[in-house]
Design a protein around this nucleic acid. Structure first.
Lengths: 131, 131
DNA sequence: AATTGACTTAGAGTAAACTCTAACCTATAT
DNA sequence: ATATAGGTTAGAGTTTACTCTAAGTCAATT
């Protein structure tokens, strides 16, 4: 069913397009208890702006290597209410540490690659056996 | 068979320990044509320092999200000799671009997490429904 | 009224990267 | 001599995260 535009409601394929993923994947995330959009009279999923904001944050977590299981854990803590605030904060801080580790690791690798690339450019076509 | 220490030769479990992976994984990498150590009279793998240096670089590539298939491609280009130098350089430059993208993405996520963590700390135990 | 297109479900299939098992071999230690 | 601690192989199994299929529903267009 098409949704009245301007009402801040989106079909599953609208959201898929906006996030650059498929509707299949969105249903999978629902099965994994990461998101639970409401349904219209016809049983179809209806996403609102808060769903979209949450999913955009989920995509960030995913892109920075948080596993689905941990994203689900965070989502479920949120559903359990205010008494899980500290647990959620801990989870966010753990992930920030992981993100900072990854940045350090990537920066070190960037340097290694820069050196190797420079060596390749320097000796290219001279058969010096760089690896 | 134990290897004479000081000779710069390592058994599969030596290497596994040094890299923080299992011997199983090292055999898997060999099946995937990422490394081919020599064998001793007994058919056992013997790794030298150049094997170790290559594997350390492989671990870097892996930690920065290069898939096994691409690492194998690079390893095979090296085996094919000097005429693949340009191809290897291209591969390294592509991966450097990927590394730089990842750093940008992680840095942006770090900022988002910092803001969220600050908001959680600010409003903790006040029931303001932060997600 | 029938076709089209987008949605629904349960569940099967896939790809990547391990991870493990079973059966066997071999050198050193008791 | 035998037990133990390592190594070997082929191949099966596992985990994660999708990805797809089949059969069906529903609303809007022709």
């Amino acid at each position: 069913m098409k949704i009245d535009s301007g009402a801040c409601m989106y079909t599953i394929s609208d959201v898929a397009k906006l996030l650059g993923i498929t509707a299949h994947t969105l249903r999978y995330y629902e099965k994994e208890e990461i998101i639970a959009p409401i349904r219209n009279a016809n049983g179809e999923r209806v996403y609102d702006d808060s769903n979209l904001a949450w999913l955009r944050f989920v995509m960030r977590l995913k892109q920075t290597q948080m596993p689905i299981s941990q994203i689900r854990e965070y989502a479920q803590l949120y559903l359990e209410g205010v008494h899980t605030t500290q647990a959620r904060l801990n989870l966010l801080e753990d992930h920030r540490n992981s993100v900072q580790d990854q940045i350090r690791n990537l920066t070190a690798t960037e340097k290694v690659l820069n050196d190797k690339i420079a060596a390749y450019k320097n000796f290219i076509n001279k058969g010096t056996g760089i690896r």
